[in-house]
Design a protein around this nucleic acid. Structure first.
Ligand SMILES: [Mn+2]
Ligand SMILES: [Mn+2]
Ligand SMILES: [Mn+2]
Ligand SMILES: [Mn+2]
Lengths: 255, 255
DNA sequence: GTGTTGAGTTTGATTGATCAAATGAAATCG
DNA sequence: CGATTTCATTTGATCAATCAAACTCAACAC
């Protein structure tokens, strides 16, 4: 039904609606915020006029509500489709990394294409092969058929106090450089870490990932890691241990 | 470079150029025959006018030589691209059947989309995972980077004499019904068979696939199986034994 | 040879996605 | 408030792929 272009707009729209405004403010989820035309055209890499055209088309298709000169917002139908695309994207991404040993960064670009071409049959097979995973290689949650899972009880590393032991569950910055840094220092999803100590004056903390050397990171950088502590550990999300991943190199944006 | 539409035209063109005119005439390969506009538009499922337009575009792109009112033929560049698409198609098809256990017939339709979206990186990973296979699930040869492998020393089942022992290497009819019949009777690629006896008067032969009941097939049907006999066995093509395939059901056309 | 026919080509239109440039509305600043 | 800046919408084009319908060849039939 929806063209692959529309699928891309929908997915991006969902991500923008649920984007955390201040990166340090933690899980600012909820039920979909307004998105301005500027944001959308910017992140889709098209001219504003194109966005207006496409948004109107989505509105006509019942996928979005559009208020001229104000912004857009997905309808329930639009959100459903968006999440389906996101599910395909993230499952494919994990599949590429786990099964085909494709480079972490590269996987995103591949998935960007594959997400539009994976049938339900193949998606099911991939999901089965991976053991019904709940998160992609960056720890981003994989929407189920039912929708996006409620955000896990994850905390922000930057807000923890010294001595805390935790497990990294998600990386909020997917830029090439950042992911390279993170991987090289053992700061990857599922890694167990200890907060060695904090130096508020310097605006930095010393993090010790098990099996790696301690790393000193600024609080700004720390804020890019979502972690799960002992207390939040008993959430229901099935944390199936995936086969070890390898060959992470350059990261990549969103989704 | 070439759009996915062009890729489809190129692939189809290659298949038409190398189509065996009389199905029973065996390996009628060689270096690319003329294709009429009618054949192409027919098999692409578009109107003749569309074909003319697209063929001109391909000619402009240096992918085909076009003689108005006569026909088309791939250039070397066109053939190279066509074979690359075919390689992706067939590797993906095998991948779907072997790794994801997707239904045999369904796999073709999936591959028809995926073939346009698989990067070299992913293709390489798939090829490695499958152990550099030389044939797809129907026994159709998988082109290498270098081009289409020279046709194996395969013979046509219809031309064999009683008592012959052989291995099925390829199935030339990919229609739903035919493949269903073939699978149900154990007449699949790599199956060892014996020609129990021949009844020329009835225009039929009795074929005995190892581990299955003997089947009586007409010579016309027999002609759809390419086989390899003891003598032709020592060809160089690496016949790596693939994990057993399962869940074959409805087949599908070409490629 | 002139007519009929069938295959192939042209022409004109359409659809989806896009841009550049012109225009319009709103917010902000002095 | 009025002017300027910013953001968004319109308008007019373009490009790829397609169709329907009109037209043109060339072969074959008499
Ligand atoms: Mn995409
Ligand atoms: Mn991701
Ligand atoms: Mn295709
Ligand atoms: Mn095939």
């Amino acid at each position: 039904m929806a063209s692959r272009t529309i699928e891309n707009y929908l997915k991006q729209l969902w991500l923008l609606e649920h984007a955390v405004r201040k990166p340090t403010s933690g899980a600012g989820r909820s039920t979909g915020n307004f998105v301005t035309m500027g944001q959308l055209s910017e992140s889709m890499g098209v001219t504003p006029g194109t966005t207006t055209t496409m948004v109107k088309a989505m509105a006509d298709a019942g996928l979005a509500r559009y208020t001229p000169r104000a912004g857009v917002r997905l309808t329930r139908a639009g959100e459903k489709l968006a999440l389906h695309v996101l599910r395909r994207h993230r499952l494919v991404e994990l599949f590429l990394v786990e099964i085909l040993a494709i480079d972490w960064a590269h996987a995103h670009e591949e998935a960007e294409e594959l997400e539009h071409v994976i049938s339900d049959t193949v998606l099911l097979a991939i999901d089965r092969l991976l053991g019904h995973p709940s998160a992609d290689p960056h720890g981003d949650p994989i929407p189920s058929e039912a929708g996006m899972p409620e955000i896990q009880n994850a905390s922000n590393l930057a807000e923890m106090k010294g001595g805390t032991e935790a497990v990294i569950v998600r990386i909020m910055d997917q830029s090439r450089e950042f992911l390279t840094f993170a991987r090289q220092n053992g700061l990857v999803p599922r890694a167990a870490i200890t907060i060695a100590h904090i130096n508020p004056g310097a605006g930095a903390m010393l993090v010790h990932p098990r099996g790696h050397s301690p790393v000193s990171v600024s609080l700004a950088v720390a804020a890019k890691f979502m972690i799960s502590t002992k207390s939040t550990e008993e959430s229901k999300t099935a944390h199936r241990p995936v086969a070890k991943r390898r060959a992470h190199r350059k990261p990549s944006p969103d989704a």
